[in-house]
Structure formats: structure tokens, C-alpha cells
Design a protein around this nucleic acid. Structure first.
Length: 380
DNA sequence: AAAGCGGGGTA
DNA sequence: TACCCAGCTTT
């Protein structure tokens, strides 16, 4: 292993800064590998503040791999509702089961064994191994990539293999050297991420706001910190028309909900029945008569935008397999992805209003509809 | 190498 | 509006 390009003095300065500047986050109070793992799983592409609110609650419910493994997969997905990337919940559940089957219910300490678990890639394996077990391995997340690309003044596109390899080599050398410091590689990896989150910000790096490693930063010296790291442009999300059914039972006291198919978008999450297309596609898929339109809203994903319309539906025959009828209380309790919350709110409104009442009779709701409908108007 | 997969904060 | 975030998996 070659020596790191970053001087030891810089590494020590950053470690020193971390000792005093680190935020007191819930997952920093422990070295319990399960608690570290749950935090890392939740933090994948997810803001610290979003995870803060959900972390303790999830751990109270699933305090160990065995506890999670004992739950049903769909129950875990529901506990994940609102956090996004639901595949993480399913992977964590599968990985917990594997820990019980293969590792006696314990979290493995070896980075390779960790990375073999579903949902655990190079970053997460490195984070768990270094933070929970003190292993001298890097944890190269988006923050660390940004910080290192700036320190080393890597001007190449960081998604390219050559640039990526350079960052990984440097990160590995730094983790190894950090193992000889009192704080250890776990603190070092978190120090890199903390700097990226607090000082070395993506758009507007705060080099002047007390960056502890500015003296050693190639990008700051060249005046190009804000331009790094370079990344390829992302493609615009594809617009998709979505028809959603609001189906009441004969008593008009309950609403039909379904679990979405496992493979696709929002897999295994609870939702109102929905299909790409309009009234015709919804009626055919649901076996229902499609009545009046109740609501329009939009929901943006990374890769597509839903232009969604909610229709009141009447079933021709039986409910589709696996569907459930939920009353207002059950509907409120159930965890739904954010994409469906406007529809669930409208369904609740419809239940509350009762037979024959019109949704738009609620002025608050009518205002919301007008606003969304305006933003929804097709361009051109 | 690129695409699929959420949700929300920020400039 | 555009960008990005404590990424992983499949194609």
C-alpha cells in the first residue's frame, strides 16, 4: 500500500476538528453493529434529519437482527414508509435473516462478509466494519468523494473508473494510516463525511468558515472547489400519466387498498390501485366502472414524474387478490409512501363526507385542488 | 457504463 | 427549477 497523498498533518487536523465539531447524532452514541447498520441503511441517499426522526422508533421495534428477521417482509416495508428506496427495507430484512441463518444472529465483522449481505455495498460494509469493529477500511460515500476530490484536486469526472480508482486508493491508504491514530478509522471515516456535510458543501463550499484542512486543499488553492467533483449531467425525469382508483365498499365506509407488486416502483408498499394511463386502463385493470375525478396531483421521482389523477371507482365483481378494505381509522394508521398520501387524504375526506357529499365542499381541500390543478396544466 | 429506485432540503 | 443527499442492484 502506497502512502497517502494527503499529508499526515492534514489527517490529524481533520481528526482534531472532528473531536470537537461532530454533531451528537443518535447512531454516534453506540458501537453496537446492528444500530450502526440500521443507521447506515437509513442514511443511504437520505438526509440526516430524515433519519433522525425515524431511527429510534425503528430500533425500538426491531432491536436486533433476530427481531427484524422474525417480522414479515411487508411489515418492515410499512415501517419504512416515507423514507424512500423501499428496497432498502426488504434488503435489510433479508440480510437480517441471513445473519440469523449464517452468523448465529450476529452482524459479521469482516468487510467481505458484510458486503455479501443484500443491500450492503462497499460503502456500507466499510462504514459498519470501521465504526462498529474498528477495521482499517474506507467508507467512501458522496461526502467523502467530494472532500477527497477537492483535497486532491481531481478534475476528472468522478464517475469514470480511473478517477474513482484514484479516490478509492487514497481512501484506503488514509483509513490504514488512521488505524494508527488514537481515534481510529471509524472516527476518520466519519470525520471525512462530517466535513462534507458541514463545511465542504456541494454547491458552496465554506472554505472560509474554519475548514480545518484548507492549507492542504488543492481545489481551494486553485480556486475551483465549487466546481468539484465533476459529474455527468443527469437526464430529465420522464413524465407518466397515472390513474388511481378510490373504491368504496357498498356501505361507503371502507376503501380498497392494495400492496404494490414486489418487483417494481414502491414495491410491496401499500397504495390505492394505480395504473399507468387514464380511465380506460384503470377500469380494465381493476375491473371497475370509473366515475368522477376526485383529485389531481403530481409526484416527482428521480427518474420519472407522476401526473396522477384519482377517480372514484365501482367494482364490477370481486376485489383483486390480496386487496384489503380499510376504514378511516385503519387507513390513517397504515403507512403509505408519500406519492400516495394526497390520494389517501382525499379518500379519507370522501369517507368523512359520506354518501352524496362532494369533496370540493371542503374549502381547504378545494383550494389545494385548484393549486395543484394549475401546476398540472399541460404546457404548450 | 447506465439505469432504476424515493423523498425532501436548499440555493 | 436544478441539484444533491451517510448508495445498491441489475442490465
Amino acid at each position: 500500500m502506497a502512502a497517502p497523498a494527503l499529508p499526515q498533518a492534514a489527517q490529524r487536523a481533520l481528526l482534531r476538528w472532528y473531536r470537537t465539531a461532530a454533531r451528537a447524532l443518535p447512531w454516534r452514541r453506540t458501537r453496537d453493529p446492528w444500530r450502526v447498520w440500521v443507521a447506515e441503511a437509513m442514511l443511504q441517499q437520505t438526509r440526516v434529519e430524515a433519519v433522525r426522526q425515524r431511527y429510534e422508533e425503528f430500533l425500538a421495534r426491531y432491536p436486533s437482527p433476530a427481531a427484524l428477521a422474525a417480522a414479515a417482509e411487508h411489515e418492515v416495508v410499512e415501517a419504512w414508509a416515507g423514507l424512500g428506496y423501499y428496497r432498502r427495507a426488504r434488503a435489510l430484512w433479508a440480510a437480517a435473516r441471513r445473519c440469523c441463518a449464517l452468523h448465529g444472529g450476529r452482524v459479521p465483522a469482516e468487510p467481505a462478509a458484510l458486503a455479501a449481505l443484500p443491500g450492503v455495498g462497499a460503502y456500507t460494509a466499510g462504514a459498519i466494519a470501521s465504526i462498529a469493529f474498528g477495521a482499517a477500511v474506507p467508507a467512501l460515500d458522496g461526502n467523502a468523494v467530494r472532500v477527497l476530490a477537492r483535497l486532491l484536486a481531481v478534475t476528472e469526472d468522478v464517475s469514470r473508473v480511473a478517477a474513482r480508482r484514484r479516490l478509492e486508493t487514497e481512501a484506503a491508504a488514509l483509513a490504514l494510516r488512521a488505524a494508527a491514530e488514537p481515534d481510529g478509522p471509524g472516527a476518520w471515516n466519519q470525520a471525512l463525511m462530517e466535513l462534507g456535510a458541514r463545511v465542504c458543501l456541494p454547491r458552496a463550499p465554506r472554505c472560509d468558515a474554519g475548514c480545518p484542512v484548507r492549507r492542504w486543499c488543492g481545489a481551494a488553492r486553485a480556486g475551483i472547489a465549487a466546481e468539484l467533483p465533476r459529474k455527468p449531467a443527469r437526464r430529465a425525469p420522464r413524465p407518466v400519466q397515472l390513474a388511481v382508483g378510490c373504491t368504496l365498499d357498498a356501505d361507503r365506509r371502507r376503501v380498497l387498498v392494495v400492496r404494490r407488486p414486489a418487483g417494481g416502483l414502491l414495491g410491496l408498499a401499500w397504495a390505492l390501485p394505480a395504473v399507468e394511463g387514464g380511465r380506460a386502463e384503470l377500469g380494465a385493470a381493476l375491473g371497475a366502472r370509473v366515475g368522477r375525478e376526485l383529485l389531481r396531483w403530481r409526484h416527482a421521482f428521480t427518474h420519472r414524474v407522476w401526473h396522477a389523477r384519482l377517480y372514484q371507482c365501482t367494482l364490477h365483481g370481486a376485489a383483486p387478490p390480496g386487496a384489503r378494505w380499510l376504514g378511516a381509522a385503519a387507513l390513517r394508521r397504515r403507512g403509505f409512501p408519500t406519492a400516495f398520501r394526497p390520494a389517501v387524504a382525499a379518500a379519507l375526506e370522501l369517507l368523512r363526507a359520506g354518501r352524496g357529499a362532494h369533496l370540493a365542499s371542503d374549502p381547504r381541500h378545494a383550494a389545494g385542488r385548484r393549486q395543484r390543478a394549475a401546476s398540472e396544466r399541460p404546457r404548450g
